[in-house]
Simulated assay, not measured.
Amino acid sequence: MRLTVEDLCVALGGRPVLHDVTLDAGEREIVGLVGPNGSGKSTVLRAVYRSLRPERGAVRVCGDDVWRLSARQAACRTAAVLQDATGNPVGLSVSEVVAMGRTPHHGLLGRDDAGDHRAVREALAACTAGHLAAREFTSLSGGERQRVLLARALVQRPRLLVLDELTNHLDIRARFELLDLVRSTGVTTLAVLHDLDLAVRLCDRVVVLHEGEVVASGPVLETLTSALLAEVFGVAATVRRHDDGVVRVTYAADPLGTAAPTPVRG
């Protein structure tokens, strides 16, 4: 499976917000979209999962332009877990919420069958949420809800996962647990992560956006240089792999005083 985004241009209210964005993600690869607030990260995701039609460019999953597929065909390939997801009716159990992910695989009048029920159980187990199956979704904690929403995405049996701030508002332990879950799925993933520490821990590669343009792309250690962190994020920091094998961001004692952000567009 391969995701390819080519020369993506998007405008909102007549104002261009993405300028010729190009990126890709290969089989089982986790690619992070990072950048300052307002750089266009979530807008890229919306174009990928067919929520926002681009003015120009192409988004291809498994070689097919997603905007030429039916909504059902696209949903069988791409599943999204969005920031502060809403729209889950009060009164539904966890199992019922996860079962919503099977909808793209049903016909017009299709109903859940034994295979669907098995898929729901397997997805919940993969997200270590099987014990929550009978609980009402709205009674769950933030971390539990994110696990369930990830299970709902996985039960679609997608070829591509799109994640928008999956760890937002979660405590430290819940964040690391979710990152480990994402890594364990083996599904090609495009993820927006606001926290650079989490991004460098999870991602194989990163794509750095600034003012709607890709300004850097590649393996984490090669891409997130001290110069780029100063220019794009306005902080003094280094990214390196520590003796335990984990890549971490280390900020200077005065991360704001020594960084000198400069324009990077063009």
Rank of each mutant, 00 (worst) to 15 (best):
Pro158Glu: 14
Arg147Cys: 07
Asp164Leu: 12
Leu140Ser: 03
Asp164Arg: 12
Leu132Gln: 06
Leu160Ser: 11
Arg157Lys: 14
Ala123Thr: 02
Leu170Ile: 03
Val155Ile: 10
Ala126Cys: 04
Arg157Ile: 01
Ala153Glu: 10
Arg121Leu: 08
Leu178His: 03
Ala123His: 02
Cys127Gln: 07
Leu161Met: 12
Leu154Gln: 12
Leu150Arg: 06
Leu170Asp: 01
Thr128Tyr: 06
Gly130Glu: 13
Gln146Pro: 07
His131Thr: 12
Arg111Ser: 13
Asp116Val: 11
Leu132Met: 09
Leu132Ser: 05
Ala114Glu: 15
Leu140Gln: 04
Ala151Ser: 06
Gly110Ala: 12
Leu179Gly: 02
Leu170Pro: 01
Leu161Asp: 12
Asp171His: 05
His131Pro: 00
Leu160Asn: 11
Leu150Gln: 08
Cys127Leu: 11
Gly142Leu: 05
Asn168Arg: 00
Ala129Gly: 12
Leu108His: 03
Ala134Phe: 00
Leu161Glu: 12
Thr128Pro: 00
Arg135Gln: 15
Arg159Phe: 01
Leu140Phe: 04
Arg147Pro: 11
Leu170Met: 02
Val155Thr: 13
Thr138Ser: 12
Leu161Ile: 13
Val155Gly: 10
Leu132Val: 08
Arg173Thr: 13
Ala151Phe: 03
Glu177Tyr: 00
Val120Glu: 06
Asp113Pro: 09
Leu108Ala: 12
Arg118Met: 05
Ala123Tyr: 00
Leu108Thr: 09
Ser139Thr: 15
Ala126Ile: 02
Leu179Lys: 01
Gln146Asn: 09
Gly115Ile: 02
Ala174Tyr: 13
Asn168Lys: 00
Arg147Asp: 08
Leu178Asn: 02
Ser139His: 15
Pro158Ser: 13
Leu179Ala: 03
Asp113Gln: 06
Leu109Thr: 09
Leu150Met: 07
Asp113Val: 04
Phe137Val: 03
Leu150His: 09
Glu136Pro: 00
Asp164Val: 12
Phe137Lys: 02
Glu165Ser: 12
Arg145Asp: 11
Arg121Val: 08
Ala126Pro: 01
Thr167Pro: 07
Leu109Trp: 15
Ala119Cys: 07
Leu170Lys: 00
Phe137Gln: 04
Arg135Met: 11
Arg121Tyr: 00
Ala134Leu: 10
Leu161Pro: 11
Gln156Ser: 09
Ala129Lys: 06
Ala129Asn: 04
Ser141Asp: 11
Leu163Trp: 04
Cys127His: 05
Glu136Val: 08
Glu136Phe: 15
Phe176Val: 14
Arg147Trp: 08
Glu136Asp: 14
Ala174Val: 03
Leu160Glu: 13
Ala125Trp: 00
